[in-house]
Amino acid sequence: MIGRVTQLGLQRASLTHLQGNLAEMADLQHRLTTGKVITKPSDDPAGTVDAMQVRSDQRATAQYTRNAADGDAWLTTVDSALGQTLGDLHRARDLTVRGANAGALGPSSRSAIATELRATADSLLQTANTTYLGRSVFAGTSTQAAFVRGPEGTVTFTGRPGAEVLRRVSDTTEVRVDAAGSEVFGQDVLNADGTLVRDPATGVPAGMSVFTLLGEIANRIEAGDGDIGDSLAALDQRLSAVLAEVGSVGSRHGQVLQAQDALASREVALANRLSAVEDADLAETIVDLQLQEVSYQAALGATSRVLQPSLLDFLR
């Protein structure tokens, strides 16, 4: 049995379809103006979950990028300080070799060499207290200066041995960005009164920083002591320690630079992935909008021809 089709029924059905066409046009226009397929979770729940995960990965990648940039700056500072240290130590070694020839040098020459050695020690102490953003790069996690000269002329290491400054540059990788000051420059072994601990038989210090070592060499040269082979050997040990740290810093710096390249590539990949999930295809959207406009105009024309009520239509 076919039900009766009334004029009111036709009107409601036509208006419903027209409103549907208008809603589709509005959605396409909104997509075209925003450039996004997803503007609220109900647009695409599964796509929304994917977009949220990508954005979470982007935030993590951005943090790793900041960590890597900070680590790069730390290691650049350390590398520059170690380069300066090597230059000073090579100069100190040359002066020590010259000062060892005490018989050929007069008092004024020995005094000049000793003065330069002490100045070199002061320069090394300044380098050992190099800072980056207010933090000493040779003191570990300590916020104090790495080395402090005491009243007796000895130097105390005030950093935190073994407390490494680390920067996480990926989910699984942490890189050390500081340098061990006590290993690079050595440290004095002191008595309670601040003097060096020495072997009672030989007078050799139990442990000595490079700063104190240069002061000892300067004193011996100034006094005309030409037998300083042991001091020269100790200076060579400090040079070897600095060279070893230079190699370690170079390796870690290379690791950070590789991480920066990987993070830059990951940022691009995540941006492309997010665009694939959220961004609208503008060309396709324009075509769909034009088709929807044609469909809407056709629906309006058909409705205007079908819905032409007269007085008789209302009297039936």
Score class of each variant (00 low, 15 high):
residue 233 A to W: 04
residue 206 A to T: 10
residue 307 L to R: 05
residue 84 Q to A: 07
residue 268 V to M: 07
residue 272 N to A: 12
residue 205 P to M: 00
residue 183 E to P: 05
residue 106 G to P: 05
residue 141 T to A: 11
residue 302 A to G: 07
residue 36 K to N: 12
residue 38 I to S: 02
residue 184 V to C: 13
residue 52 M to I: 00
residue 231 S to K: 11
residue 73 A to D: 15
residue 197 V to Q: 03
residue 74 W to P: 13
residue 256 V to S: 10
residue 12 R to I: 14
residue 141 T to S: 13
residue 176 R to M: 11
residue 26 A to E: 10
residue 75 L to M: 06
residue 300 L to S: 06
residue 298 A to L: 07
residue 71 G to R: 00
residue 266 R to W: 12
residue 176 R to I: 11
residue 156 T to G: 07
residue 209 S to P: 05
residue 81 A to F: 03
residue 62 A to Q: 01
residue 227 D to K: 15
residue 200 P to T: 10
residue 263 L to G: 10
residue 278 E to N: 08
residue 65 T to I: 12
residue 151 P to C: 08
residue 107 P to H: 08
residue 111 S to P: 02
residue 206 A to K: 01
residue 25 M to I: 11
residue 51 A to T: 00
residue 258 Q to N: 07
residue 95 L to E: 09
residue 189 V to W: 03
residue 176 R to P: 08
residue 281 D to M: 02
residue 204 V to E: 05
residue 78 V to F: 10
residue 1 M to V: 07
residue 116 E to H: 06
residue 282 L to V: 15
residue 139 A to Y: 01
residue 120 T to Y: 07
residue 177 V to W: 03
residue 291 L to R: 09
residue 66 R to A: 15
residue 206 A to F: 03
residue 154 T to A: 02
residue 169 V to G: 04
residue 75 L to G: 05
residue 273 R to S: 14
residue 134 G to N: 01
residue 252 R to G: 06
residue 84 Q to L: 06
residue 239 L to P: 10
residue 293 E to C: 08
residue 2 I to R: 14
residue 280 A to V: 04
residue 250 G to A: 01
residue 218 A to C: 02
residue 103 G to F: 02
residue 206 A to G: 08
residue 275 S to T: 08
residue 269 A to W: 04
residue 58 Q to S: 10
residue 104 A to I: 10
residue 183 E to T: 08
residue 104 A to C: 09
residue 162 G to F: 04
residue 304 S to D: 01
residue 30 H to L: 15
residue 197 V to L: 05
residue 9 G to F: 13
residue 20 G to W: 06
residue 249 V to N: 08
residue 280 A to R: 02
residue 303 T to N: 04
residue 108 S to F: 14
residue 215 G to M: 07
residue 190 L to C: 05
residue 203 G to W: 14
residue 213 L to G: 01
residue 89 L to V: 01
residue 79 D to M: 05
residue 59 R to L: 09
residue 76 T to P: 11
residue 127 T to P: 15
residue 250 G to R: 02
residue 219 N to K: 13
residue 168 R to W: 09
residue 102 A to T: 12
residue 273 R to I: 13
residue 123 S to V: 09
residue 200 P to D: 09
residue 133 L to G: 13
residue 24 E to N: 10
residue 292 Q to S: 15
residue 306 V to H: 09
residue 257 L to Q: 09
residue 149 R to C: 02
residue 73 A to W: 01
residue 166 L to W: 02
residue 97 V to I: 14
residue 296 Y to E: 13
residue 15 L to P: 05
residue 18 L to N: 14
residue 122 D to C: 03
residue 151 P to E: 13
residue 55 R to A: 05
residue 175 V to L: 05
residue 210 V to N: 11
